[in-house]
């Protein structure tokens, strides 16, 4: 089982190798662009924040860049099973497919998280220490797994390419502007805040913001994220299983 998972992950990385230049470039450009086009202008607007906006917004940039990358890279994955009789003839179990994809997402997430943290550290000097880095990644982990599954679920329902592109845009807008990544959540209507803080991704964001501003982690929110993450894992596992066993 472990051997098959290792080989499936290797396969994903060999596929990624062909686009390695564009992948590395985009991994670097994405946090830079978000910083330049969102953080810099907004820093002139939100001047009252503590810590200062350019530090506060780093949590949003980390979250958006990591989750958007994971979402994009997972999008094509289910198609590889759906469209391939050959893949389905291989002695691979559903759990092996599933775990390999989750691990691949986590590795990609960690890579993007590291690149984004390095970029942001050089732009806003020393916003994050190594222990904060580890804590942030830990609280982000359920969201990475959730987004990886969400990508798989969306792709298994919609086959057209324009819907794929449309859903990418919607996802980017959602994680950027609906959960307080770049605009402080207390500026939204209170009814909306009560709803959105219990969304799994926003609870990860709130915890990252807390870690960066040296506050304590909300473990209840972390558990909510883990709960949602498990629900999404269950759904996508069943989608894969249905496909593998036709």
């Amino acid at each position: 089982m472990i051997e098959n998972i290792k080989i499936l992950i290797l396969r994903e990385f060999l596929i990624l190798k062909k686009q390695s230049f564009s992948f590395f470039s985009l991994s670097f450009i994405l946090p830079c662009f978000i910083y330049i086009f969102f953080a810099v202008p907004f820093s002139k607007v939100f001047t009252e924040l503590k810590p200062i906006y350019s530090i506060w917004v780093c949590s949003g940039i980390l979250l958006v860049s990591v989750l958007f990358t994971v979402y994009l890279l997972n999008f094509n994955w289910i198609k590889k099973i759906y469209n391939s009789n050959f893949m389905n003839s291989l002695p691979i179990t559903t759990i092996e497919y599933f775990i390999s994809q989750l691990l691949f997402s986590i590795i990609i997430g960690l890579f993007q998280f590291t690149v984004s943290a390095l970029v942001l550290n050089s732009l806003s000097v020393g916003f994050i220490s190594f222990s904060q880095f580890l804590k942030c990644f830990f609280v982000l982990l359920p969201s990475i797994i959730l987004v990886s599954n969400l990508s798989l679920i969306v792709n298994s329902f919609f086959k057209k390419e324009y819907i794929f592109n449309f859903s990418n845009c919607l996802f980017f807008l959602f994680i950027s502007f609906s959960i307080g990544s770049f605009i402080p959540i207390n500026l939204y209507p209170s009814e909306y805040i009560n709803f959105v803080i219990y969304l799994p991704i926003s609870s990860s964001l709130i915890n990252i913001q807390n870690i960066i501003s040296f506050q304590t982690i909300f473990f209840n929110m972390l558990f909510i994220s883990i709960f949602y993450c498990l629900v999404f894992c269950f759904i996508s596992y069943n989608i894969i299983d249905r496909k593998v066993h036709n």
Partner: peptide, 11 residues
């Protein structure tokens, strides 16, 4: 061996 060409085109 399937009837149609099925490769990982990026490999």
């Amino acid at each position: 061996m399937p009837q149609n060409s099925e490769f990982d085109l990026d490999l």
